[in-house]
Each structure stands twice: as C-alpha cells, then as structure tokens.
C-alpha cells in the first residue's frame, strides 16, 4: 500500500489530493474533540513537565543574578562540577568502547546465546539505582569481598571517587550498546564483507565502512549516556560518603544544599543540570533529523 501511495502522488497529483481529502474525513474527529484532546495533552504536559522545568530557573534566579553566580562559583559547588565532569569523562568513553565491541560481536556474527547476552546488557536499566550502589558496597566496601584486602593496601573505592565512577558506569552501561545493536543488525554485513574481500583489514573496514553508517546512532547513544552519567543520583549517593569538596557530585551537592534550606543555591546548581538536559534534548532532536535526512539521501 505504501508503494501505491507513492505512485499515485507522483504520476497523478490531482486524484491523490482528493483521496487524501477523503481520508482526512474518515480519519479525523470533530473539531471540538480535537481541541479538547489537545487541551488535555498540553495541560497535562504543562502541569507535569513545563512548569517544573520553569520553576528550576525561577528558583535559581529568585535572589537575582548576583546570588546565582555566587552560588555557582562557590568552591564546594565548583569541586562538585569538576567531579561530575570527571565521572562522566571516564564512564562515557568506557561505555562507548564497550558498546562498539558488543554491537560488533552481536550484529555482525551469529552465535549461540545471543538473545541472552542482549538481555544481560539491558539488565542495568531494570535495576534500581540504589541497588546499583549497594552491590559495589558489597564487593569493595570494608565488610565486602575485597574490602579488607584493599584496606591493607590503602586503596579506597567506596566513599571515594573510584566508587562514584563505578556506580556511574553501571547505570549508564547499556546506553551506547542498545542504540548500536539494532542499527548495526539492520545494516547487515554485506558492505563489511565486500571491504574484507577487496583486501581491507579489520580496522580499515570498521573506520571507513561501518563507522560512517552508524555515526548518528553512536552520537545519539553517547549524548544520552552522558546526560545520565552527569545526572545520576541514587547509585552515586550510596557509594559517595557525601564529603563536601571531595566526593560530592552536582546532584549530591543539590541534595545537601536543599536539606540545608539553601534553596537558591540548590536551584542554581540544579539549573546547570537542567540546561544540560535541554542541550541534550536539542542535540537529540538534531541528530534524529540528521539521521532521517541521511536515510532519505541513501534511498534517493
């Protein structure tokens, strides 16, 4: 039927217009119903999404720009920003390499246990963030498996920066892989096989043939992974120890400021993360648009 539509539109423009008009009649609700549904949808989104978002910025600027900038350049806030960037800076590249490796193995080869492997890769998404933190306490904490041994060698993982990085890696683990696996499966192996047969080595094939095809999907996965890495709260909260200036990430700093009734400062730090969220959504929309255009070009 899709072919039929395309054919009609190109060869016979006039009937296609009348056809689409007839279709509109059959597929549309009365004006009042339409307006009502739009009103309900926008009202719901306004109440649950837009007003909360606006209130972050309103709360941050309640005492003016001066108080806002003072709250952001405050040393504890500044060290929280740096720790958040560090954790994301380690977690995102590691999950990127893993995502590429997993997608290559899963999409380009047939082997037993593949669907089990895909399910296991998705597992961190269905584990509560609090439990994600807890399991690292069980492994590396003082009461845990390696805790006493690490203590003897004076290596701190829990209530220190490495624990925060590990918890961040766990909660952002599937992002890149789950974006790339379906994409690379859909693209098949023909082009790579052709490159190998023509004498390219594995790396050349990956860089010149595979990567250009998956670049938007890869970028999409990375920005979502990064947003979650910088914003993670529950998992990091369990392993952090909440030492201000040392093991506090931005979301944890927000919690401390908020519990101290320092609302303006809490919302000021929160507004930085809200801006990150808006940039993420803007990039995501842009990438979706670019990817659609690429597909259209490839088809044309």
């Amino acid at each position: 039927m899709m072919w039929d539509d395309v054919g009609t539109a190109q060869a016979l423009p006039a009937p296609s217009i009348s056809k689409s008009a007839a279709r509109r009649g059959a597929r549309e609700e009365p004006v009042l119903v339409r307006a009502g549904l739009i009103f309900i949808a926008l009202g719901f989104l306004l109440l649950f999404l837009f007003v909360p978002l606006a209130s972050v910025f309103a709360g941050a600027l309640r005492k003016g720009w001066e108080a806002y900038f003072a709250a952001i350049v405050e040393p504890d806030a500044w060290s929280a920003i740096k720790l958040t960037l560090l954790a994301a800076g380690i977690a995102v590249p590691l999950n990127l390499v893993f995502g590429l490796a997993a997608a290559w193995a899963i999409a380009k080869f047939e082997f037993r246990g593949k669907s089990l492997l895909i399910t296991l890769i998705d597992l961190p998404f269905s584990v509560s963030p609090v439990i994600a933190g807890l399991i690292y306490v069980l492994v590396f904490g003082l009461q845990g498996w390696f805790g006493p041994c690490l203590y003897v060698h004076d290596i701190r993982i829990i209530f220190a920066v490495p624990g925060i990085v590990l918890a961040t890696i766990f909660v952002t683990f599937p992002f890149v892989a789950r974006e790339l696996i379906p994409l690379m499966q859909a693209q098949g192996t023909d082009e790579e096989e052709a490159a190998i047969v023509l004498g390219a080595n594995g790396w050349q094939t990956f860089w010149r043939v595979t990567l250009p095809d998956i670049k938007w999907g890869l970028f999409y996965g990375v920005i979502l992974c990064n947003a979650r890495a910088m914003g993670e709260f529950g998992a990091v909260s369990v392993v952090s120890g909440h030492v201000r200036g040392l093991t506090n990430t931005m979301p944890l700093d927000i919690e401390i400021l908020y519990n101290e009734y320092n609302f303006t400062a809490a919302f000021a730090v929160a507004s930085l993360l809200a801006m990150l969220a808006l940039v993420t959504l803007a990039l995501k929309t842009l990438v979706e648009w670019l990817a659609r255009n690429q597909i259209r070009r490839d088809l044309a």
């Binding site: 899963i106 082997f111 094939t205």
Partner: peptide
C-alpha cells in the same frame, strides 16, 4: 564468517559485562 574481530569484541563484551554487572549483582 569472513569478518574479523569476533573473539576480540565478544571477549571485551563478556569481561566488561562480568566485571561491571554480573559479578557485583551476584554479590547481592
């Protein structure tokens, strides 16, 4: 398959999955 890299990529996947997800979860 004629494509290279199966052992390497599956190896990275399984080791990373075990270290980050499976072993810590089994601790619970």
């Amino acid at each position: 398959s004629v494509l290279p890299g199966f052992g390497l990529t599956l190896g990275i996947t399984l080791v990373y999955l075990s270290v980050i997800v499976l072993i810590p979860l089994s601790a619970a």
